[in-house]
Design a binder for these strands. Structure first.
Length: 127
RNA sequence: CAAGUAAAUCGCCUUAUCGCUGAAUGUUCAACUUGAUUGGACAUUUGGAGGAAAGUCCGAACACCGUAGUGCAACAUAAUGGUUAAUGACCAUCGGUCGUGAGAUCAGGAAAAGUGCAACAGAAAGUAUGUACAGGUAAUGCUGUAGUGAAACCAGGUAAACUCUAUGUGGUGCAAUGUCAUGUAUACCAACGUUUGCUUGCCCGCCGUUUGUUUUUAACAGAUGGUGGCAGGCGGGAGGGCGGCACGCUCGAUUGUUGGAGGGUAGACAGCUAAAGUGUGCUGGUAACAGUACACUCAGAUAAAUGAUAAGGGCUUUUUUGUUUUAGAAUUUUUUUUGAAAUGAAGAAGUACAGAAUUCGGCUUAUAGAUCUACUUAAAUA
């Protein structure tokens, strides 16, 4: 259960995504960038997440597919360590802002630092 | 053997762990309209990218919109015959060009409709006429020959120059389209325009004139004129349609046309994967292909699945090294050494191009490497 990544946990609604990019905050761990928004869903998922790779930087569909798969895999394997203590619901969009290809090890490592940064930023008391 | 030519096929594999997605079956939970219901969870079984899925260049299926016609324009095609659902694709034959050859390739209609263009050579490639020689004249490139060139004047070349001829071509693409859900706006602002003329038929109401009959201050019947209603025709009518233009046709009014400024939904299901389907055999055909028998079912996602990690194995290239065979050189024998081929071990590097999105048939482009079939070989070398 902890390592799965079902349909319910995927960010699908076009409206929500629009809202996310309009109002969301972001943290960066190059080459990854996380845009997130505190929101609420009808169903039970804690976090709904999506991944994206720019067509401008990667022209070939094969390259984009591979990077998205790597990011999805890294998210899937790491998320349980971070989200056990979260009570509110979030929408996530993870972007690959780098311009060169990458492998699973670096993506996974960067995903960890990205999640650390996210938790740190959210746990700070708001002014 | 080597070098080629043509056609075809394949295009990484195995195991473990963790996942994604379609379907079937089962268990279970929830909802209510209580059932062949809907939605979720779990388990098991099983399917899950390509030869180009790519480019979107042709041709179709399918869907919606449009559709009297004529002319012009635009675009495409261009030997002959065939194949096909169809094509600009494919096959065969003829012809041109290239190659020793197997074969490759062609933008293969028309130059006696017109306009243009033409390297080098040459005096000159056309409102030309020089040189030499010969002939001729009153006189003159007036005539012939030589010379240049593919071509030297009622001639040719060029149409991957315009052009002409023949044939063909409606538009938009599955974000099509339909159903349901949600929402609702025939709202608001501005500009422009119609709301009417003539005529035919019918209807009955009213008014007038007139004729006949009778029960004669009147009633009834008929004719005619005016007015009103309904229907049709002709004209007028802002603008729209016939996605290039013109003629022409057509639609067109208290819910009009054009423009401005805005509002709602952007979610589910169908379309959607059993088809011009795939494989094998046989028959016909030179072939493209057709017919037939048997077998098979082979992705359906939607911020978009088909993956990640680890270990091992293939394959290719290359380095080091061992063994065997073979050719040569040195040497009295032993032996040493150089090249080639086969094979073993160890190491290193590489393992391509590329990701379905309605579906087919082609074409084009990209592609590490591997397999297989048929055929050709002039010269040089052995």
């Amino acid at each position: 259960m902890e390592q799965s990544y079902k349909k319910i946990e995927k960010l699908k609604s076009e409206k929500l995504i629009e809202k996310l990019f309009a109002e969301g905050k972001s943290v960066v761990a190059y080459p990854l960038r996380l845009v997130y928004l505190k929101t609420s869903f009808d169903d039970a998922a804690i976090v709904k997440a999506g991944v994206s790779v720019s067509k401008r930087n990667f022209k070939k569909a094969v390259q984009r597919n591979r990077l998205k798969r790597l990011m999805r895999e890294a998210y899937r394997l790491n998320k349980s360590a971070y989200f056990n203590n979260i009570t509110e619901q979030y929408a996530f969009m993870i972007l690959y802002t780098g311009k060169s290809d990458s492998d699973f090890k670096t993506v996974s490592k960067k995903m960890n630092t990205l999640m650390d940064a996210f938790l740190k930023k959210e746990s700070q008391p708001k002014p």
